[in-house]
């Protein structure tokens, strides 16, 4: 009779490792404060310029920010600054 098998969990045993909950959607309308984060890939600014134009047309405030390098996560200070001053952030991926 096979009693089954006990194995040890190879993960970090954190729920975050399997996905994080989505933030609530922004309310409809104008006036949201939106950060545009340039990750420092070539031509990311071209893409963000266009996004900025579209957002402003719709009556939103835009704050332009940038990571020091696309290869590393945004520094904690930058993340906090965005979280404090903005309702949402759009990260530009470009090449």
């Amino acid at each position: 009779m096979n009693d089954g098998l006990v194995i040890l969990d190879p993960t970090a045993e954190r729920d975050e490792a399997t996905g994080r909950p989505l933030a609530a959607a922004l309310p409809a309308g104008t006036g949201a404060r939106i950060a545009l984060l340039d990750i420092r890939k070539p031509r990311g600014d071209v893409f963000l310029d266009e996004i900025e134009r579209l957002l402003r047309e719709r009556g939103h405030e835009v704050q332009r920010t940038a990571k020091p390098t696309f290869t590393k996560p945004a520094p904690a200070d930058l993340r906090r600054e965005i979280a404090e001053h903005c309702d949402a952030v759009i990260e530009a991926l470009a090449d």
Partner: peptide
């Protein structure tokens, strides 16, 4: 010394 969560695989499961 060992603290990882134990996962039980059932008798009818192929590990």
């Amino acid at each position: 010394r060992i603290r990882a969560r134990e996962l039980d695989l059932g008798a009818l499961e192929d590990p």
